[in-house]
Design a protein around this nucleic acid. Structure first.
Lengths: 269, 269
DNA sequence: TCGGGATATTGGTTCGTACCACTTGGCCAT
DNA sequence: ATGGCCAAGTGGTACGAACCAATATCCCGA
């Protein structure tokens, strides 16, 4: 913390020190605060200087940069070297975030619902064992659910968890909500990262019926493997999403640094 | 640079100062160097301490952290607070990168090819104008190409650029390669970011024929808007990808910070 | 043999400083 | 008016110091 906690007399109304907000680091608190303020500004409007933000929020410039770095990474702002930091145009979505179906629907303002189609224990099998890094004979708990948004079928998902890691899960009766929440709260299992592979498929008779669309309709097929803090696979899920009610939105970026050669370099339009 | 360039006597064979490599910043040079070394290590193996890396590469710990931050963000390593930094399990892919079709195929070891189906100038129209932030009557250059990988049809793509921004483009005859490269080299146009929306569709007769698959097959439909450094839309492209030869792979992450409450907290398995 | 606590080690946060690279805008000569 | 130069201001890079928080390890007592 800043030295001299006795408190110097200097203090104007402009300064809004950062640091309450529970016990989050300053850069995170500042990031959230700026995030909100950005929402009220016009796209492409100029943000205050890093040095000025440092003064205003009573933190060092490094901390300001840490917060702005995160916002730039998330696509909320962009920076132009000698010019300044600007509010980015509202991005359509940020689906490189790991969200559960429940959270996803909440974010879209839809009511998430669930119909459990199967909930049992089986052997992992070759495919799932490969995803989870276990033996094919390992016991896994399988959960098949039809997920709905505002009561209309949205996706058909099958989750696999190593039974040994989630003892007593099969006895629970609250699997109609967020599986991730149960894993966090009851088993201390934090899925911080997941790898997904999306393919496009046409639905067979049975899946189409469950999803309430004609057989042969297009759908997304998703294979997901969720990892814990130590990068160990803990969850393997496959899902079928109705294509007429779902799309994948993502922002992609050029890597550092781009080609800066080439002759013309006229000023931009 | 480090103060006292006169150079203290202390110096072992272990140290490998960073700093050649063109005129890249140290953290970037270090990031690349570590990237390579990581490739030769076992997943989950322990990396040297941040403090030791600082000594070994003759940079400050902040610089080491800057490099490791980037690697962690990219999913190449993961960190555990009091424990250390570890090599991440090889991630299937990192498709949150903005790559052109040409670069994409090169990365997969395939030979990219192109058949130009149309190359002309039209009015933008409502949809494209919206994407590009212009008037519907603005003149745009349209480029329709069938992209192939090892001579087999892979995707059908239609690109739109504001004609005023790319004068003389229509006269060129080298549009069978990377459009992005031409935009960078000839027009100083750097697309650093793009927003994409992927949907799953079934192919109509005509598109299916061009892609060489049965009508009614599943495919990805992608709408992409490319932005320059100033976050201004400059390119609007729609593509159809054969689903049997293409998938989207992405790593998603939990945001800062996750829920850390809940009772049990048994040690992890 | 088995907990459990002290301790060393590791990444995480924060500060402050200095200087570099790029952009912008104004001034001035043309 | 036009073009080019220069100075001020902005983000980018880099250093080093100090302390905090989570983890691993070792050693000791039960």
């Amino acid at each position: 913390m800043t030295p001299a906690p006795g408190g110097p007399p200097e203090r104007t109304d402009e300064r809004q020190p950062v640091g309450e907000y529970g016990r989050l680091p300053k850069h995170e608190t500042l990031r959230r605060r700026l995030r909100r303020e950005i929402g009220h500004r016009e796209p492409h409007s100029l943000l205050p200087t890093e040095r000025e933000l440092a003064v205003r929020y009573q933190v060092s410039r490094s901390t300001v940069r840490q917060a702005l770095d995160a916002l730039a990474e998330a696509g909320a702002v962009y920076r132009v070297h000698g010019a300044g930091t600007f509010v980015a145009a509202p991005t359509i979505s940020k689906s490189h975030l790991l969200t559960s179906f429940t959270e996803d629907m909440q974010a879209r303002g839809l009511q998430a619902g669930t119909r459990i189609l199967a909930f049992d224990e089986t052997e992992a099998g070759r495919r799932t064992a490969e995803d989870l890094g276990t033996e094919p004979t390992e016991k896994v708990t399988r959960l098949v659910r039809l997920r709905t948004a505002d009561a209309r079928p949205m996706c058909l998902e099958t989750a696999h968890l190593r039974s040994a890691r989630v003892p007593g899960l099969l006895a629970r009766d609250d699997l109609d909500g967020s599986l991730y929440r149960i894993l966090e709260r009851e088993y201390g299992l934090h899925l911080v990262r997941a790898e997904q592979a999306w393919t496009a498929v046409t639905l067979d008779e049975r899946s189409a019926a469950l999803l309430g669309v004609p057989s042969g309709s297009a759908a997304f097929h998703v294979r997901r493997v969720g990892m814990d803090e130590r990068d160990r696979p803990q969850e393997a899920t496959t899902s079928l999403y109705r294509a007429d009610r779902y799309d994948v939105r993502l922002t992609v970026r050029r890597t550092y640094p781009r080609d800066r050669s080439g002759p013309p370099r006229r000023p931009h339009v």
